[in-house]
């Protein structure tokens, strides 16, 4: 069946009526943003996939049990679930540190899935993988704002409220995050041509 562009709110309503295709559309629409948000926090693709699955499962359980009440704001709600799960995992992992390899994956995954270490194999040639690594290396407070603003699409005021700082601090952290990234990109020769983006 061909569907026109339907809003998240409409898709959630259809899903509440039992339309699994509507849920499939929501997953397809938002999987990349949810996965990227988690991945940048936990730094491991397998853990990120597990947490993404947990996030959607929480969403399914909440919606199907009738406890969903954020009509029209599905993505921010889903991203908050994903972000919280990723931060919880990150804190637990800090308490029980795993051995992290040079490419940022943990030693367990490297041993278990050595033939699949795609990220580490591609990192030298894939500038976007390298950029993701550079984001992960940012100071926590800068990385947090960058993820919240760019991938979670929270406004600077929402970020300021969520992190208990002033809006100027949130803006400053984002600015430093971008400055740091630019410097690191130049150091690691990630080529981008600012002229290309001129209007």
């Amino acid at each position: 069946m061909i569907r026109k562009e339907v809003s998240d709110s409409q898709l959630v309503s259809l899903y509440m009526k039992g339309d699994e295709e509507a849920f499939a559309q929501l997953v397809e629409k938002h999987k990349s943003r949810v996965f990227t948000t988690i991945y940048l926090i936990v730094k491991d693709q397998y853990t990120a996939e597990d947490l993404m699955q947990d996030s959607f499962i929480k969403a399914v359980n909440t919606i199907k049990s009738g406890r969903y009440n954020e009509e029209g704001k599905f993505l921010p709600w889903l991203l908050r679930i994903a972000h919280n799960l990723a931060i919880d995992h990150f804190r637990k992992a800090k308490r029980y540190p795993t051995i992290v390899m040079e490419d940022g994956s943990n030693v367990f995954n490297t041993l278990e899935f050595s033939e699949d270490s795609i990220e580490s194999l591609q990192i030298k040639k894939d500038t976007h993988a390298l950029l993701r690594k550079l984001i992960q290396e940012l100071p926590e407070s800068q990385k947090e704002v960058l993820i919240m603003r760019h991938y979670m699409q929270m406004s600077f005021q929402e970020i300021a409220d969520a992190t208990d700082v002033s809006i100027n601090t949130a803006l400053g952290r984002m600015r430093y995050a971008l400055i740091n990234l630019r410097k690191k990109m130049q150091k690691t020769n990630i080529a981008y041509d600012p002229n290309f983006y001129r209007k």
Partner: peptide, 27 residues
Amino acid sequence: LVATLAELDKCAIKPSDSVVQRILDYS
């Protein structure tokens, strides 16, 4: 600034098809 933000857009990644399928199956 715009150039750096455009780079951030490009580094979004997709999860594997298998995890997406597991989510749909769960639902």
